[in-house]
Design a protein around this nucleic acid. Sequence first.
DNA 1: TAGTTAATGCAACTAAGTCGCATTTAAAAA
DNA 2: TTTTTAAATGCGACTTAGTTGCATTAACTA
Lengths: 136, 136
Amino acid sequence: MINSIMQEKNLKITSARKELLEVLNSLKRPVSFEDIKHKITMDKATFYRNISKFESESLVNSFESNGKKRYYEIRQFPHAHFVCNVCNTIECLGEIPPPTLVGYTILDALYKGICRNCTQGVCIKDLQGEIMYNSP
Amino acid sequence: MINSIMQEKNLKITSARKELLEVLNSLKRPVSFEDIKHKITMDKATFYRNISKFESESLVNSFESNGKKRYYEIRQFPHAHFVCNVCNTIECLGEIPPPTLVGYTILDALYKGICRNCTQGVCIKDLQGEIMYNSP
DNA sequence: TAGTTAATGCAACTAAGTCGCATTTAAAAA
DNA sequence: TTTTTAAATGCGACTTAGTTGCATTAACTA
Ligand SMILES: [Mn+2]
Ligand SMILES: [Mn+2]
Ligand SMILES: [Zn+2]
Ligand SMILES: [Zn+2]
């Protein structure tokens, strides 16, 4: 349960923290502050301060995607991420573990390119930059 | 030669563009605007406008690293990059091609972690956050 | 060489994230 | 339970990489 997880990490159990972990846990996908700011009541300073506490306590991990936003997710087993340059979708790649490289410690892997849907022409950007979905 | 490359891409050959390609070509490593602003004379707006032209003409590619800065390099054969979380060094991984994933088009791979030097304790951050290099 | 169009410099702007500080709140101590 | 104390919060101001509008300048074209 969320409270006991925070207790183990010696984090004060505040309503902002419970709310934030609850939201991250329910969404089960990487999100930016922008993505969830309407689902949470705390100030953005509180969001970022708590996220970085969670990161240093290994409850959350993060990566940067296309654009300038950083994405956060509940820490699970190590896995890579894929960001689509066309539709900007972010996918957790459970199947593809980050590679190993002798001498290095690889902690994170981020791939960019064209996702399965966009490769098949399922989602394309129209001329206005809006994303449209067609059947394959 | 740099001029003929630009001609092929139907880019106006300006002194700013020649200077920028010259610098990127001579450094042979990914650099941010900050890294090279003292080596070039153009305004930062001109830098970013030209970089994005070069990217859309496939002369340059880019990726984001630790911190908020974006890094740019002359486009070579496809290769992955490694960013060290300790010393923030960026390495081009010529040996490791980006992986393939059925259905996807992977165009870029970015790995983060601890570089060979930092893993061996060759470079460590001291308490002031300065990076020091020791012999292994 | 003159005309056209794109490129440039400059200053103002944007937006994600950070920081200082006064106030509130969780948890320890009494 | 009440008091004490340190940590967490909200708010506004700030930072900084990158972008944009606009007047001016410099490549290419005829
Ligand atoms: Mn993930
Ligand atoms: Mn490279
Ligand atoms: Zn896509
Ligand atoms: Zn390192």
